[in-house]
């Protein structure tokens, strides 16, 4: 939580294009779905790296955000809706934790740990992509209430 709080202070009032994290969630969903079906540690390692960049440097710094800026954003019309970078950054941090657990499951040959951790990450990423689900809205306050 300390890391999350530090990150939140650093990126305060940092507004980004809200469509970027949504696009990233679509790619994340596809990668996690492929990893779940193929039980691929390599795919999870790649996604772990992306989550780590998103969690520490910010959601606008990931390779997926780069793809969005380079190929998707120029083709989008309409008003740019901005959002605070902190909510998607929080979601990336939670994704990172699940990716670490999944990779540990793979390295320790505990396939059920891999499957459950990737399953949770996919659940959240898909909800974000398809329903604009806000993970921070639902779990951050509950977490705070539990620890403080």
């Amino acid at each position: 939580m300390a890391v999350l709080n530090e990150a939140s202070v650093k990126s305060k009032a940092n507004l980004i294009d809200a469509r970027g994290p949504r696009f990233s969630a679509v790619i994340t969903t596809l990668v996690l779905a492929a990893a779940l079906v193929t039980q691929s540690a390599a795919l999870i390692a790649i996604q772990l790296a992306v989550f780590a960049i998103g969690a520490f440097a910010g959601p606008a710094k990931t390779p997926y955000a780069f793809l969005f800026k380079k190929f998707v954003k120029p083709r989008l019309k309409g008003e740019v809706i901005t959002e605070d970078a902190r909510p998607p950054q929080f979601a990336q941090s939670v994704g990172l934790i699940f990716a670490v657990v999944a990779l540990a499951g793979s390295l320790l040959s505990i396939p059920v740990l891999f499957t459950v951790a990737v399953g949770f990450a996919l659940f959240a990423a898909f909800l974000n992509a398809a329903f604009n689900f806000c993970l921070g809205c639902e779990i951050y306050l509950l977490g705070l209430r539990a620890v403080k």
Binding site: A33, V37, Q39, V118, F123, L127, A130, F131
Partner: peptide, 23 residues
């Protein structure tokens, strides 16, 4: 244990939750 089952289960749960969430 490569299988489509976990993917189908996760997506089904996520869609059900997502519809409830949106409503």
């Amino acid at each position: 244990m490569k299988s489509l089952t976990p993917l189908v289960v996760v997506l089904a749960l996520a869609i059900a939750f997502g519809v409830w969430y949106t409503r």
